[in-house]
């Protein structure tokens, strides 16, 4: 195995598992700064995880193994997803392949597990969050699939490593296909990570929350897993955005050097977007994702019609 492959795998795993909580931490930090508050340190998510790790879990009376296993299963599926999403073009196959459609399946497991756990507790708040999450997920999945289809058609493969090398360099940006895919994927990132205007990660108010809902009945290490799951989802989507939908160079070392800069820049962009926008009505969110899907479709048409 070459040194670049080892470095790529190391960044992929260490970044995904250990550094992921830094991304939501950074967004919260900058958001507070933009709003004129001192705000928590970017390391706050780690402090939260440490605090939760020491606390005992709480079982809901009458709940089954579905409730108890859901956070572990969600975290395991996100672990698999992190193993699946490479950060550079010559990342080695860690055993789970590099297929982008398999990634969508793994994200669906986490969603299923948490929503089933919400039913297991029977809690109205959890179910409200789960039902909203699943509603939006229908539209997110369409937009996500079409956005990655743009990249897959441009690079003629669904292997993420092939897609990274296929979208590297400047020549792909001469056609409108990939920029349109990027626009669609940007909305998908916001929706899938549960940030404004789709969801407000700062609030636990039942009128507004989506992703926080199913977390309400959990405590201790269960909740720590779920917080990590949310952070890992930020990592996955922002990495995908960086390595597929933002300009990146050909060489592995150059890709590795650019990745942190692009991740930090996207966190800053998300912080600015959250400061400027308010959360939109739940029922309008699918419309926005529908626009994303149509934009991605336009990208596919542009590619097939040979517009450059």
């Amino acid at each position: 195995m070459t040194s670049t492959a080892i470095a790529g795998a190391a960044v992929q795993l260490v970044g995904g598992i250990v550094l992921a909580p830094l991304l939501p931490g950074l967004i919260q930090y900058w958001k507070a700064r933009l709003q004129g508050r001192p705000g928590p340190s970017p390391l706050q998510p780690y402090r939260e995880l440490r605090r939760l790790w020491r606390k005992s879990t709480v079982d809901v009376a009458g709940a089954t193994a579905v409730y108890r296993l859901a956070p572990s299963l969600a975290a395991a599926s996100l672990l698999g997803a992190i193993g699946l999403v490479p950060v550079v073009a010559d990342s080695p196959d860690l055993g789970v392949g590099h297929d982008v459609i398999a990634l969508i399946g793994l994200l669906a497991i986490a969603r299923f597990a948490l929503a089933a756990a919400a039913w297991d507790t029977g809690s109205g708040f959890s179910l409200m969050g789960a039902s909203r999450d699943l509603t939006i997920s229908v539209f997110t999945e369409v937009a996500l699939l079409l956005a990655v289809t743009v990249a897959a058609i441009v690079t003629r493969t669904t292997s993420l490593t092939g897609m990274i090398s296929g979208t590297a360099g400047g020549h792909v940006w001469s056609s409108p296909a990939l920029p349109l895919g990027t626009a669609a994927f940007a909305l998908v990132v916001i929706a899938e990570t549960g940030r404004q205007p789709f969801d407000n990660p700062d609030t636990h108010l039942e009128l507004t929350m989506i992703h926080e809902g199913p977390l309400l009945e959990y405590a201790g290490r269960d909740l720590a897993y779920l917080h990590w799951v949310s952070a890992a989802r930020h990592w996955l989507l922002l990495v995908l955005a960086a390595v597929l939908f933002l300009p990146h160079p050909h060489g592995t070392w150059a890709q590795l050097a650019l990745l942190p800069a692009e991740l930090v820049a996207m966190c800053a962009a998300l912080a600015v977007a959250e400061t400027l926008m308010v959360k939109m009505r739940l029922l309008l969110a699918p419309r926005l994702l529908g626009i994303a899907a149509v934009v991605a479709l336009l990208g596919i048409v542009a590619r097939q019609a040979g517009i450059s």
Binding site: S56, D59, A61, S72, L73, A76
Partner: peptide, 23 residues
């Protein structure tokens, strides 16, 4: 990965559960 991951994480979660609480 899913089975081993779930088993390990569920094991780490431990049996240190507090008394069951109602929803």
């Amino acid at each position: 990965v899913l089975v081993a991951g779930t088993a390990v994480l569920a094991g780490l979660r431990g049996r240190r559960a507090a008394a069951p609480a109602p929803t």
